[in-house]
C-alpha cells in the first residue's frame, strides 16, 4: 500500500480515536458509543502506523529471482 494512503488511514483513525474521547468528555456522545468507536478505529490506527513507518515513497527494486 502506498505511503500516502497509509498516512491518510493513520490520520483519520487517529483523529477518530481522539475525537471520540473528546466528544465523550464534552458530553456529546455516550460512554458506550465512544468506546465502540475507539474499539473499531484503534486497531486500524495501530496497523496503519506500523505500516506507514516502513512504507517507501519510491518504487522498490525488482526482487532477486535467483540464477
Amino acid at each position: 500500500m502506498k505511503k500516502n494512503i497509509l498516512e491518510g488511514i493513520m490520520v483519520v483513525t487517529g483523529l477518530v480515536c481522539l475525537g471520540s474521547g473528546l466528544a465523550e468528555l464534552a458530553g456529546l456522545i455516550s460512554q458506550w458509543i465512544a468506546a465502540l468507536v475507539l474499539v473499531v478505529a484503534f486497531p486500524f490506527f495501530i496497523i496503519a502506523l506500523g505500516l506507514w513507518c516502513r512504507a517507501s515513497q519510491k518504487e522498490g527494486d525488482y526482487p532477486f529471482l535467483g540464477y
Binding site: 465502540l36 484503534f42 486497531p43 496497523i47
Partner: peptide
C-alpha cells in the same frame, strides 16, 4: 491473516472497557 490482528486488538480493547466500567 490481517483481520485476526485487527480483531485481536479490538476485542481486548473492548474487554478493557467492559472491565474498567
Amino acid at each position: 491473516f490481517v483481520a485476526v490482528v485487527l480483531v485481536a486488538i479490538a476485542i481486548w480493547s473492548l474487554a478493557l472497557y467492559i472491565g474498567l466500567s
